[in-house]
Design a binder for these strands. Structure first.
Lengths: 245, 245
DNA sequence: AACTGATTGCGTCCACTGTACGCGATCGCG
DNA sequence: CGCGATCGCGTACAGTGGACGCAATCAGTT
């Protein structure tokens, strides 16, 4: 058995754990902690110090116990990640009674907000994993904004993925422009300065972008492009299929 | 000093290492290995068994030495990731003498090809890091396809990021639908089957997508949407700037 | 030709992961 | 009232990245 297979297996287990309903029977001592409490602690650590500071030890310390005690609640590290992600995602944002374009924008903006609150979710979401109830609820809500659209199922999924990808990219950028990560941007800048003749377009693009200040419309720019593209497709299909007015 | 800061610092060091030019002086024993050889070995391991099987130990074993010997060539794990990524990316694809739309599509398709060859680059690219020479060359080439477009620098960068994000999402999907990761998809399917009433739209969207077979046009679908959106913007700006009616 | 000091190969050691396992304490249910 | 499932948690271990130090090597200088 390869390690790769082990990893895959552990991710499946993590999913099973995430979807397991709470068992009611309790023939034993009262649990001293709760899954939610553990998730909260882990999330707090991740928010404060980053995802890879989240270790069984740290979480346990924060709860005032030892790491091995946690294994009574969480089968392993993978499962901890899973509940962290699903907890942090929370309930999806839904904008009722608006057109698909506004609804989809609101949905994606909601994803953005959530991800900005917990920048580490980017890492977890973009890691191979089975979605939990919360993540699926987001998906469901996103699909809900598109019921009217003449798109195939796969296309709708692709569209959501595209929007999520865009949001996550931006969160990553924003996050890494914070201290102390801004050294990253700084090092890139110095590299570009040194080899401006090797990468002229890149250098000038970045310079130009800096002049614009920290454009907060990058998010909107991406949405607009994608949704314009969708609108074009919808117009085309609407014209050819239903009622050419 | 927080660990988070340490991480950031190590990434900056990784960048410096990546951009360092080979020093010529050699007052000592001949190096028995080369950076390229090490990178190759690491890449081979990642290709065969996945990224997290790439450990100093494994790489050393593959080269027939011990891990500590490697530290003479590579300052640390972060730097190993950096050279793996930059080596695997290789030289950018450029389509000369075609319109921006075709050129940009070809560029993105090139990214897709490279990423499919080494699925683990997705993980590395989407991790916070300073780009190496290879990655920057890709960026430069991508920007090169857009010289004619009436877009601001920041917008061009956003556009490339958007396309890359889309490509990476798809690579991830393809990759995780391979054995043994396909259990992931399988577990999602069984979840959806069980709770179809909770996630009706998601369930039907996936069912529909499966009916379409493994649509290989997901990539193209995303490109089309985005580029249609860009075309719309270009048309608008072209009209208002050159010949205002 | 001898010397010298930078540089290489690599063994030892350490902090710290995640986690298997086992033991005693607890307490709901029959 | 006791049976046995469940809890808290200590011990133990394999495997990680990495600091450090020492001996062997060899390019330059003398």
């Amino acid at each position: 058995m390869t390690e790769g297979e082990v990893d895959a297996a552990s991710r499946v287990e993590a999913a099973a754990f995430l979807w397991a309903q709470p068992s009611g029977r309790k023939p034993g001592p009262k649990p001293r902690y709760t899954l939610d409490g553990i998730a909260e602690a882990a999330i707090a650590i991740a928010d404060e110090s980053g995802l890879d500071e989240v270790t069984m030890q740290r979480v346990a310390e924060r709860l005032g116990t030892t790491k091995m005690a946690l294994y009574r609640y969480v089968p392993g590290r993978a499962e901890l990640d899973a509940i962290m992600l699903d907890t942090a995602l929370g309930a999806p944002v839904v904008a009722e009674g608006v057109q698909w374009r506004a609804a989809l924008t609101a949905w994606a903006a909601g994803v953005h907000t959530r991800a900005m609150t917990h920048p580490w979710v980017v890492e977890l979401v973009q890691r191979p994993h089975t979605p939990g109830p919360g993540e699926l609820a987001w998906f469901e809500a996103g699909l809900g904004t598109m019921v009217e659209l003449p798109l195939r199922g796969g296309e709708k999924l692709d569209l959501l993925t595209l929007l999520v990808g865009h949001v996550m990219s931006l969160v990553r950028q924003r996050d890494s422009s914070r201290a102390p990560e801004q050294q990253l941007a700084a090092s890139l800048a110095s590299i570009l300065a040194t080899r401006a003749e090797l990468y002229p377009r890149t250098a000038s693009a970045f310079a130009e972008a800096d002049d614009d200040g920290a454009r907060d419309d990058a998010l909107r720019f991406g949405f607009e492009r994608v949704l314009d593209g969708v609108a074009a497709l919808v117009a085309e299909r609407g014209a050819s299929s239903s009622s050419p007015s």
